[in-house]
Amino acid sequence: MKKKNNPWAIFWAVLAMLYFFVPMLGTFIFSLRMKRGVLSFLAYQSVLSDANFLRSFRYSATMGVVTVIVSVVLLLPSVYWIYIKAPKMKPVMEIISILPFVIPVIVLVFGLIRTFGRPPFQLTLSSFGTDVLIAAGYVIISMPYMYRAIDVGMRSMDVRTLTEAAQNLGSNWFQVLTLVILPNLRIAILSGALICFATVMGELILGDFLVRPALGSYMAGVGRSKAYEPAALAIISYGLTWLCLGLIQYFSRGRSQQQLTGR
């Protein structure tokens, strides 16, 4: 029996599409109006040729990659350990993994500054120390996503059998982890990594309060002083989020969909 489309459903669907597209379209057209009277990509040229943009983009992208690497190195062995050796610790791990949702980023940065801004654990003296602190903050913020990605990935494979097989063939723990588990988890880790990366690229608070040239602080600065460039930045940032999510969807075709939330 083919159901007829419900008029109310269409009403809500159209309303939602308007809410999605009007700000996007409005922003895009606005971003083209920098040159009076004609539509041009001048605002984009202005942004892309700004040395500060390139510097902050590079900084945030580097931080994104560092965050991904640290997250994987930290979480993969831990989750694996829980599956193999300490299943009883799973509930503890789950609770820890949602703690970053309970502690808003502004509170986290407050705590980080007050803890590591003074002896005995002072990290804010050098820019490298501050970067370590920021990277740690990013790892904490994106931990729920990375944890969930790895956990879901491990649930869908037989960790135990794979480990036993590899051990019977003479592998040590490190080899099991890097040559057997990691390759099997590559899709899960890739989606977790993209979410981590997107989070870092869009993050304002850590870079702003710890005074490092992150993309978020650069954007906020542009927003205070310019008119058309912010619109161009919003479109670029939209595109970046789009790209990350699109890649996740592409790589995890046919698997359960990832969802990232929270800011």
Binding site: P23, M24, G26, T27, F30, S31, A198, G202, E203, L204, G216, M219, A220, G223, P230, A231, L233, A234, S237, Y238, T241, L245, L260, T261, R263
Partner: peptide, 13 residues
């Protein structure tokens, strides 16, 4: 997942 500063920019524009 679209929030933060760019979202504010989009609404201002």
């Amino acid at each position: 997942n679209f929030g933060g500063v760019p979202l504010a920019f989009a609404f201002i524009a």
